[in-house]
Nucleic acid binder design. Structure first.
Lengths: 159, 159
DNA sequence: TATTGTTATACTCTATAACTATA
DNA sequence: TATAGTTATAGAGTATAACAATA
């Protein structure tokens, strides 16, 4: 949105043809886009996880097993898909299938002891800000968060 | 997140054990992490592209074909992988293989006419900031970018 | 009948190794 | 011999459809 072909306010010259005005938000987002790719990739490689496996693990509560179909909903994928993801994570002893006494069709996914430990490491890394951001003065970090929170409020259910 | 076991005013006490102090950068990054997943997913679905296909397309210059092996380097994947990606994109007539007169082993990947058009749409979407950020007052956007640029400078080659 | 999880099947992405055709 | 691209193969992610067990 906001093409604003008029060309008026700030930008003095630079009214060649498309009359591009500086798009701060777009540039910021482009910057972040590149960062994300690199950061998440590093974490996944370090922990030998794939993105879907990490998502599954992050969406588990070590204290409360969840049915596989709930997991499929949470991850936004088909149930048949969850079977495979759980298979692989279970083979690493990070999670395990448990019976549900209330409904014998259901299998509850629980985080194992070592899985909980592993998940803690994952969680610590996953939201760790990139070096450049972590190195910002506290004041900047605070402003950054304030602005993003404002953005989150503004969008109905964006964040 | 943020268990804040201490339970006090601002901070002051709260020196239970982990003594968690508010981590602005971490919270900001967590916020952004969720946003990215949703945003990029939307774009890819809308254009019927997979992430690697989008990356390939974005890394092409419509005005200058590149050898496949260069593409493999750029994408950071194996050459055998590029073969398949190019196959699928070529079957959609978005790109095409061309001979290199200088070296008959090489195949140059060029963007087709409709491919260039398609890529323009992709590019427009790809770095489009989320609604919440786009809706921020211009002043906030500007500050956001300034801070991120500072972060980019700070990190040797982070961004 | 409806639901939960699995299996069968079919794509895509990914890497490694082997192969072709060039250099 | 070395390099560019392909093919063969294998494992992971994904969805759809069919199926078994259980509600």
């Amino acid at each position: 949105m906001a093409t604003r072909t008029g060309a008026t306010g700030k930008q003095r010259a630079a009214r060649a043809e498309p009359s591009k005005k500086p798009d701060y938000a777009r540039e910021a987002w482009a910057l972040l886009t590149r960062l994300f790719k690199a950061e998440k990739g590093k974490h996944l490689a370090a922990l030998e996880l794939t993105m879907p496996q990490a998502q599954l693990l992050l969406n588990l509560d070590p204290d409360r097993p969840v049915p596989m179909n709930t997991l499929a909903d949470t991850l936004g994928c088909d149930a048949s898909n969850v079977t495979g993801l759980v298979d692989r994570l279970e083979s690493r002893r990070l999670i395990e299938r448990r019976a549900d006494p209330a409904d014998r069709r259901v299998k509850m996914i629980a985080v194992t002891g070592s899985g909980a430990e592993f998940r803690t490491k994952l969680l610590a890394r996953w939201y760790e800000p990139p070096a450049g951001i972590a190195a910002l003065p506290d004041r900047d970090k605070k402003i950054l968060l304030q602005i993003l929170r404002r953005a989150a409020e503004g969008a109905t259910d964006q964040l």
